[in-house]
Amino acid sequence: MTDATATDSRSGTDRAMIYFAERARWRGPEVALWIGAFALAFLFPSRALLFNEVAILALFALSLDLVLGYAGIVSLGHGAFFGLGAYAAGLLAKAGAGAAPLSDPTLGLLFAALVCAAVGYVTSFLVLRGSDLTRLMVTLGVALIFQEIANRMAWLTGGADGLQGVAPANILGMFEFDLYGRNAYLYSLTVLMVLFVFARKIVHSPFGISLRAIKGNSLRAGAIGIPVNRRLNGAYTLGAAYAGVAGALLAQTTAFVSLDVLDFHRSADVMLIVVFGGVGTLYGAVVGAAAFKAMYDVLAAATPQYWEFWLGLVLVLLVLFVRGGVMGLLGAFYARLQRVGGRP
């Protein structure tokens, strides 16, 4: 009896080790997706500017997915960090007058990430107090304060005219930001991929699992010793830094920052992207961003003014009819395939 339990236990442990490794394993489609994304730069060089926008949007959405999908914080003002990152990188590049060291793009990203992490950390304490509704209001309020600041401090931000002359130096001192945006796209995509891999690592780490636990049941999470608020502070800070890098990429690759980076629309758009792609899936951010841009291209090309209407309609339909977003549908489809074609 005792012996049997012991051997069972040993094989159980082996199974469990495999189980954990399997959960975090890189899968074929993932690798294909990233290779494909890089291939796009060479297959359709003329659309590189568009791809660049998608990559930036995907990173921005990824940052919200960390906050919303993993930490469960509903934010109406996530655009604040995107805008802050854009201004941080823009101002640094401007200070360096387009030459290294200050205008170095990598340094710009780092600077934006640090500024946003610091501001995100401080505001996380405000955001984490209270219910969902209070969080909505605080995040929206903070975003509006940022917008006001950027608007009123025209001497620093350029106000409504935008921040001009923020062209960064060459990437790693070697690659120029070309006119067609191919290097810009490769640059943004690389940053996206690196940060994605890092996010993926975090999601499968004890820290990431504890975030999902908090989102699932914060009462139980506290009872097993998870410092709920501290973990959420961490997640919010991380999300802010990621959003800041996305904003910085936009500033660097377009060499321009306008008040538009802080617009409410950005916060709403990115929410749509994450929900459309699938909350708490990471890849939903990438898929959602691509779908969003594609949709924008088609619908806004037809009726540029009424894009907003279609956007609203998609939001409404999404809530009423689709649960789990694209990744949810794909996951269900994949599970069906396995059941039909796979083992008994």
């Binding site: 469990a16 080790m17 189980y19 490794a21 975090a24 820290f207 699992i209 636990a213 010793g225 961490g234």
Partner: peptide, 23 residues
């Protein structure tokens, strides 16, 4: 398995580790 793994990693004070895969 995840649930108990989580409870144990918190009990061992490893819950804040983000650089290491769980399990």
């Amino acid at each position: 398995l995840e649930t108990i793994g989580l409870a144990l990693s918190e009990a061992h004070g490893e819950g804040a580790q983000f650089w290491r895969r769980v399990g």
